[in-house]
């Protein structure tokens, strides 16, 4: 378990405020990064204020991320510690449905895992 600093919305009315979140331990296919910058998208605001009626609180918005890799799992081939890495709206998908097999994992038929507010396969919410 890792503890990360963040700014979170705790409900639809509250402003974002400092918050600590807990991440599961990285697995063999995971890449750990230190976030350097994050863009602000209207989707973040829609989500923080529950305008799409699906927000899981507390919620840490932000999905235009650039960071520096600090560690990689043993099965990771494309990244090494020290590399720059980007993260968009999606951090995982099932990997075996027709869309995932077609390289269109954003349309994962089992629902991709969002960078925030997303259910994780076999873990806590993002």
């Amino acid at each position: 378990m890792t503890t990360s600093k963040a700014y979170a919305a705790v409900n639809a009315q509250s402003p974002l405020c400092p918050h600590e979140i807990h991440r599961r331990d990285p697995g063999p296919e995971d890449v750990t990064i230190r976030i350097l910058h994050c863009g602000v998208c209207h989707s973040d605001l829609h989500t923080a204020r529950n305008e799409w009626k699906n927000t899981i609180y507390p919620c840490v918005p932000g999905h235009e991320i650039v960071g520096r890799v600090t560690a990689v799992g043993r099965a990771v081939k494309n990244f090494r510690a020290g590399d720059l890495a980007g993260v968009g709206c999606m951090v995982d998908s099932c990997g075996h449905c027709a869309s995932c097999q077609d390289g269109e994992e954003q349309y994962c038929e089992n629902g991709f895992t969002g960078t925030y507010n997303g259910p994780v396969f076999g873990g806590d919410n993002t």
């Binding site: 974002l16 350097l36 863009g39 602000v40 209207h42 923080a48 235009e64």
Partner: peptide, 28 residues
Amino acid sequence: IDYINTAYERMLRNDVKYRFVIDMTTLN
């Protein structure tokens, strides 16, 4: 990052050209 709530309000007024980007080294 402590400007984020103001940034949200400005975004709602179309008052950004064109993207706010948070410098995460300001998160202490």
